[in-house]
Design a protein around this nucleic acid. Sequence first.
RNA 1: GCCGAUGUAGCUCAGCCGGUAGAGCAACUGAUUCGUAAUCAGUAGGUCACCAGUUCGAUUCUGGUCAUCGGCUCCA
Length: 637
Amino acid sequence: MDIKILFPDSKEISFPSGTTAAEAVKAWSGDTLPHWVAVKINKQPVDLSYPIQGDARVEGIDIASTEGLSILRHSISHVMAQAVQDVFPGAKVSIGPSIEDGFYYDFEYKEPFTVDDFDKIEKRMKEIVAADNPFIREELPRASAVKLFEERSENYKVELINDLPEDIKVVSIYKQGGYIDLCRGPHIPSTGIIKAFKLLSVAGAYWRGNEKNQMLQRIYGTGFANENELQDYLTLLEEAKKRDHRRLGRELDLFQVNEEAGAGLIIFHPKGMMLRYLIEDWEKKEHLKRGYDMVMGPQILKADLWKKSGHFDHYRDNMYFTEVDEQDYGIKPMNCLSHMLIYKSKIRSYRDLPLRYFELGTVHRHEKTGVLHGLLRVRQFTQDDAHILCTPEQLNSEIIAIADFVKYAMKIFGFEYEVELSTRPENSIGSDADWELATSALENALKDNNISYEVNEGDGAFYGPKIDFKLKDVLKRKWQCATIQCDFTLPERFDLHYIGADGEKHRPVMLHRVILGSIERFIGVLIEHYAGAFPVWLSPTQCILLTVTDKHIPYAQTVHDRLIEAGIRSERYFDNEKLGYKIRQAQMQKIPYMLVIGDKEVEAGTVAPRSRDGKNMGSIAVDEFINMIKDQCEKKQ
RNA sequence: GCCGAUGUAGCUCAGCCGGUAGAGCAACUGAUUCGUAAUCAGUAGGUCACCAGUUCGAUUCUGGUCAUCGGCUCCA
């Protein structure tokens, strides 16, 4: 019986049923296979060796496409698993998927792998690639598959099969050379297709991502269609390292983390603090424009209050406690409690709502040692925090206003971001009805605003669901900055109310929200985002005066005085060095403008600005320069 | 917290099989007074993360602690 196959160019060809995808594609393309690593049969990705049984539409998966690369990398992970088992007999395999930019495979082995083992593993992988072994797919009944992997002592694979839903009766395995893996596929036709790969790092990873389980050893690697692309990627990684905020923080003298002071505690140097001041100053003004009131609570509050709020029961492990006059106090990990007390300080009318309390609140959280990371994950940080107390009717418009605020702020700094909706976690307080109400309030606001988002099941705060806005760091790790959390529970626990138009008491709803999130984290991401070359309005130093020789110092000093007087962040560099050297130093400090002062400038009473992108602006009047800087600050450039 | 790696001058790194340490850059001093990404010379700088142990002797070997890095779990 013949089947009809429709190809991408709309050509339709008949083949005998059971013709493989590869044969069909060859017949269509004229004996040579295009750069396809697999195909889609009726939208379903399958191997090139797949026998086509009925009428079908065939599309190619090019090795250069996202999907193709992902298949290639997944196949490389199998080759790596084979190599690891060849080099380290007894190593057990578990899972090995492709991921963004590469792949990994998790193993159990009696000895730890180190990067020094990579040479041996890569060498063996190259042999496997050279052998050009085909990837052979086989399907077998569950029971046989279990038996197969039991015989091979692959207990992780057995566990995976046993945990499959009951209606799955047949599983697929892939063989290449002597290696067998449980796998859905598809794979590249044979190992010889692999042209460029590299093992990158080794790390521990819990089996199935659960910290109660056995820790396995994960080897990360990457692969590309050709050597050039691999080299480009490795170069990119090197470049990314140069943007790392921890490195730039030191080079630009912004901050330090000091072992003597303690882990996860940031010490801001003058330039880092200036950057922080500029951000905070901008933010305060933006909040006042949007109807927020600035407030401030204490750093420690009695433990009983934390018990009342539920933090003691649900957040204690992350809190620090202290004792004052034989009374227990909790150091605040969040700013909400004081804000609740401010609300409660008098009777509120529905006419007062919404109330928006804003605080640059410094909080302490006990983070596990292994998670600390530069400015991005610390133990003390300051949130641009606000709590909005409003009527249920006001909820939607308040959420939308916050989402707009976030959008505006991100645009000022030029950030792209992803949005996630996080729902009720296991360890939480409040009624099902309230959670449902809160979650749908957030979800509706997103939908009303046409904001695309992903749902993050069970990732909400213990008191309410949240909308998270995530920024990416230079190594593509995502960090939550802005968040909006909807809370029906704390107003309940603190018995907040307002008098409605009907003269009755009603319960307000509370929104917790941050725009930049943690100022520390935001600065960390910001440093990487700008690669340390901050726009003029944020640069701790906006310009630096470079004298050509010592005799230009007196005039340069008068220029400096004028700039400082005008509110420009100017620095002097009057050292006895050649101009070229000073320019190089200023360039490495990424200062937006270097002002060269030589004979010409002294004579004409001007400055000669050179921007950090190398443009020479010639001699201009000092006032002209001042106005230019002010204009750029105004425009947030 | 877990797995692995690492910790030597301000920074980047050398330092073999145990005999108390070096380079480049930065810093400081002097000379030079110079026009758009590195002038020359000299000087100084280290409880080799910390604490034990083995040893005649430990930066080196062993154990512990602390910190950092890459992940995992967790999270702003």
